[in-house]
Design a protein around this nucleic acid. Structure first.
Lengths: 340, 340
DNA sequence: CTGAAAGCGCTTACAG
DNA sequence: CTGAAAGCGCTTACAG
């Protein structure tokens, strides 16, 4: 890489100032058309590479937006990410992605990196236990934030998430209307707002139907296919032989169905199972999964737009935006079957 | 955010020079211990944020490593990414992730961004059709590259990938040894080196066993669960009723098994199916999937190390590093069963 | 419509 | 062990 090519290289070669080159490359109307064309053509010809660090140091805008989630490999976040990506691409923002794996330290170190790079904003699904001070720190340092999926008590920023209590209610009511009485909730944790909301939704639906809620009908924890699979034995061994399971998400539901099948029972027939999220995979599972569509695409799109608005100086009020979930009925639920 | 805090803010407050502050914050032995401690403590107390853009402009190292793959949501890449992440974290490099979805334009625009940000290096699984000039452009502009999963003809950079021809041979031979004669290969494309290598491996294994290879025994295309599911009908309708399918990857295999089950046949009994990659999911599929472990973790780890070596000035010879795959036999394969 | 000059916030020889 | 000064490559008033 012979000699580093910079604005002044072009300016010198064409006998103009760097100011003119800078303006020309950014299509400023201040530059005469002929001059602009000459400059752009020359820049292209010699392979000029714009130095964004220098520009960003000067303008204090970096064109970088950070996105932090629990785990990008989780298909639920994957769908949110895809719609965020689409939205940000449109505004030519580069997006910097990171997993925090629910470790506060990882999340903090990423936020630190964003601050150091002068990122323009951040979209995050906060790690379990994120204190509102961590959110405030970003805002105080000029890094506007928007939350998705989970909220942080007391944080003064917009939040976009599904209406979890309502959504799990849809699944629970569906099972109740099919005639199920002994319904277990599998997965999730009280440590997240989402976890608390979903469990509440289940409890409320059961109580409204006049059904008792047994403490041992909650198997907390599982959030992955693997975990759903592993918990099948424990579920099937419950004394009072529940006939249905409301699962934390589609991954847990699919894992559980695999575990049920492995135990010689037929999911959807012997045991009814519901998921949550309506991932692409839900429709092709065996049996096809009855689940709750969680509006991932909307969450991502609306969060990205809210952030872009903030970047463009539009004031976005801190608020909780609840996306309404929808029940999608498929073959994994049916009338209850009593097991010997 | 009152007044921007910078090195000189600290220098002024403590009556030292910015040079001393800069050195102290980076633990330079040139600074007296007492001075260093005083500076670091003050920096922490007033909430100083290091400006990496300024530093990077000066030093021309950014601490950023780009990672580009087809699709981060694909579990195959997910596992590679996780091991890259672990490796880079250790060297305190920030990693900038992007999907190219096999669109050359997306890939180019990301590479451009990396060049503009002054990234230190890049690890990529090149998009279909990537010309070697695109790789050369990065190298010429001081952005060292390392390839994973796919190679680019003629590119002078290190490549880490599985031995695809050998690996698919393991799966094919396994089916042949069970007694299968009519074996179909489903998925993949000749447009990628991986696709060509895997099909070759299948053909070679068939021929070595003295079996004829029928052109219609190849159903190219599918690479996702959804696509595997959809192609089941076409597969089951083949005139000569093949008894087994060698699939492009685990996703296709799992989708196909779901499709077979939906058609009323029992995968693993009526039809033998093999996958490729050995994703976590393979072990919990119903039936558990016989598949080829593709060394994702090794690929990621070794690629990251090679790049870090290059960043540290160690010369890494361009070479093709083939990771040896292993066959993992489970329940999705068995003796052939002739269908009416 | 174009140019000369200052400045973004660091780091790095160099001098003492 | 510490400081004064130059410079990384841009952009932005300002002047003409």
């Amino acid at each position: 890489m012979a000699q580093k090519i910079k604005l002044s290289t072009i300016a010198d070669a064409l006998g103009v100032s760097t100011a003119t080159v800078s303006l020309a490359l950014r299509d400023s109307p201040l530059v005469a058309d002929a001059t602009r064309d000459r400059i752009k053509e020359h820049a292209r010809a010699i392979g000029y590479i714009y130095n964004r660090r220098a520009a960003s140091l000067r303008t204090s805008r970096s064109g970088i937006v950070g996105v932090v989630v629990h785990d990008i490999m989780n298909p639920f976040f994957a769908e949110i990410l895809r719609s965020i990506e689409t939205e940000l691409d449109r505004s030519r923002q580069t997006f910097l992605l990171s997993n925090h794996y629910d470790q506060l330290e990882k999340q903090r170190s990423f936020i630190d990196t964003l601050l150091q790079l002068g990122a323009d904003g951040v979209i995050m699904s906060p790690a379990i236990g994120t204190p509102r001070e961590d959110i405030q720190l970003m805002e105080d340092n000029g890094l506007p934030a928007v939350l998705v999926a989970r909220s942080v008590e007391g944080a003064q920023v917009p939040v976009f998430r599904g209406d979890d209590s309502y959504g799990i209610g849809l699944a629970t009511n569906h099972l109740i209307s099919l005639g199920h009485r002994r319904i277990v909730m599998i997965g999730g944790t009280d440590q997240t707002s989402t976890g608390r909301h979903r469990y509440q939704g289940y409890v409320i639906a059961m109580q409204k139907a006049g059904l008792e809620v047994q403490p041992h009908w909650r198997i907390p924890g599982p959030r992955t296919k693997q975990a759903g699979f592993e918990v099948a034995g424990q579920f099937l061994a419950l004394q009072d032989k529940p006939t249905a399971a409301v699962c934390w998400n589609d991954l847990v539901a699919i894992g559980l169905m695999n575990g049920i099948a492995r135990a010689g029972l037929v999911p959807g027939t012997d045991i009814s199972v519901t998921g949550y999220d309506d991932l692409e995979e839900a429709a092709i599972a065996t049996p096809a999964l009855t689940t709750v569509w969680n509006g991932q695409r909307d969450v991502g799109r609306r969060a990205a737009r809210a952030l872009l608005d903030r970047l463009n100086g539009i004031v976005v009020q801190p608020s909780q935006e609840l996306i309404k979930p929808e029940l999608h009925v498929r073959q994994s639920t049916g009338k209850p079957v009593e097991r010997g």
